[in-house]
Write a protein that binds this DNA or RNA. Sequence first.
DNA 1: AATATATATGAACATATAAACATATATAAA
DNA 2: TTTATATATGTTTATATGTTCATATATATT
Lengths: 121, 121
Amino acid sequence: MNGENEILDRCEETIIHPDIVEKLKKELLTEQKSYNLSEFFKIFGDLTRIRIIQVLSLQELCVCDISTILNISQSATSHQLKILRQFGVAKPRKDGKMMYYSISDEHIKSIFTNGLEHISE
Amino acid sequence: MNGENEILDRCEETIIHPDIVEKLKKELLTEQKSYNLSEFFKIFGDLTRIRIIQVLSLQELCVCDISTILNISQSATSHQLKILRQFGVAKPRKDGKMMYYSISDEHIKSIFTNGLEHISE
DNA sequence: AATATATATGAACATATAAACATATATAAA
DNA sequence: TTTATATATGTTTATATGTTCATATATATT
């Protein structure tokens, strides 16, 4: 309705540090890139998925083994693996009626390890 | 009810690779550690928070500047900063009635950068 | 061909959580 | 000490999403 008052619940008329605000506005990531990044990190922000990522970072596994090791239903495992696939976190390999999954690249293992070290401090 | 059939929706009676299953079960992180790790990564898995993390990784900022730069309400900004504080992602510095926030350590910047590089491939 | 089994997936449901709104707190300025 | 302002927070509501259940698909085995 009113461009200047779109968000009322913010610091009043006066911008605190106009120079800093202007400078940083130019350095912002695009909304699209920020969104993609948050969606990517969302993958790691779920207990079931992080457990799957952990075991897959140890070795390639079939769906049944993953679900048995982690005590997760086949359906839930498969649903989560689909998400991991879609975001390029895990990659599938088909062998007969079995599907084997592994971590798709070293970036993923780095992020996992980095986070694990951080919370272990 | 039935220990052996707690989860029916999994591979049938036969475990596919008993040796692998037994080996990996021993290498599992504790449930607590996995949970903490997923909660930690959850911080990065939200558009608003990842945008706050981005600007804070550029420089220390007061709440009002953050909300102005990102066009987020003061309330929403403060709520998210509370979460970032609680998980040791951002640290506050008080100066009069102003609160300045900055990224609490290099681990956070690494994870952010690592993720950004990954999605940029 | 019929059956068994490993995996995938659509839909429903329950839960988690981010944003808005209202209001409280704390400090500065008058 | 009264007012203004920067930040914090409790509550409500809307939305997102993980799990379950039922079922489909694909391959192997008989």
